[in-house]
Amino acid sequence: MPAHKLLGMALRYLLLIWIAMIFIFPIVFMVISSLKPDLQLLSDSSSLRAFLPVGDISPTNYLSAFDRAPILLFIFNSVLITGITIVFSLFLCSLAAFSFVFLSWRGQGVIFAIILATFIVPFETIAVPLLLIVNNLPWIGLEGIKNSWINSYHVQIIPFIADALTIFLFVQYFRDLPKDLIEASRIDGATWFQVYRRVIMPLSGPIIATAAILKFLMMYNNQLLWPIMVVQEESYRPVMLGLQYFFQLNTQWGEIMAYLTIITIPVLIFYLLLQKAFIASIASTGIKG
């Protein structure tokens, strides 16, 4: 390779690495700081030691973070809420998409158009009236009848099950599936639901992964505004609300960093393992849009 090409190559890598550092330094800082006592954390942040695991390194912050807030409960809540929402969302949205693509019924086009239009309604603009609705909805649960959805798991799940993006993704995918498959099984006497379950779903692996990942990012990471409004009881709080506990009395930055690490690292590991699927799922929103 000639010298100037080699130099060009080196410069490109230098640029790539330099940019990578911009994206990675806060994350490294978070993890490293979570291992340091506060005094050292503060003094270290005036030098590059902020990024190095040097000095008094210990898991103390993690232990005291667990003492301070019911972290396992919050993680359980977040995982439960996110998990149930994803399962129901995949099922109901794919079912709806199936109906839009393969069945023909009156008003189909109009309803699909209305659903697509909700795509440009930001959740934040409907949060306040939605609060009024859930505040007055009855619920029959294990403890009997309640006349409000406030302070519960379902208030954090049900409003988020169906959304335009998930339905749209499934519709796009189903449209590209070969139609004769379906006709063949209909001739064999299968009901529409059997076609959905036995023919379509087994072919939908990639789009299910995509939709699940997008839903996961939307749910797990964004549980702030809505839970602030509808959950006052500790036992139903998701992880993002748990942060409040670290600001009440005796704020310790080391503990906050430990908490941030606890709620972030599993997602990052998940992402690193499945990064192709993560990136493909974002890209798929772009290809046909």
Binding site: L249, T251, Q252
Partner: peptide, 8 residues
């Protein structure tokens, strides 16, 4: 003001 400074 930093919350930690308030404490210590």
């Amino acid at each position: 003001q930093d919350g930690a400074d308030r404490e210590t």
